[in-house]
């Protein structure tokens, strides 16, 4: 199972902070599209981090079980 984590306004839209999904032969772009359709993330200006590193939404990097993928809204620190 891969862990999917949601933060800020993304968590508000998905109504959860995290969930676990079974991943088989999927890359970042495919997982993003799956979640995008599931929660209608179209209005959100989100970015994706794979194992705590920002990656492109269209990235073809493989997501493995035990990976952590996070959907991050705009940063607001400071």
């Amino acid at each position: 199972m891969a862990t999917i984590r949601y933060f800020g306004i993304v968590a508000e839209v998905t109504q959860r902070n995290e969930e676990y999904i079974e991943i088989e032969n999927m890359n970042v772009s495919e997982v993003w599209n799956l979640l995008y359709a599931k929660y209608d993330l179209s209005t959100l200006n989100a970015r994706v981090a794979l194992n705590q590193r920002l990656v492109d939404l269209n990235s073809s990097i493989t997501v493995n079980n035990n990976d952590e993928l996070a959907l991050l809204p705009p940063f607001a620190g400071g």
Binding site: A70, F75, A76
Partner: peptide
């Protein structure tokens, strides 16, 4: 820190509505 740290801010208004802060 403002640009790179994944920190999120929910701006709470006096009338109890809110919006999300964007740097």
């Amino acid at each position: 820190v403002k640009k790179k740290a994944p920190i999120f801010g929910k701006e709470l208004f006096e009338d109890e509505t809110h919006q999300w802060k964007v740097n």
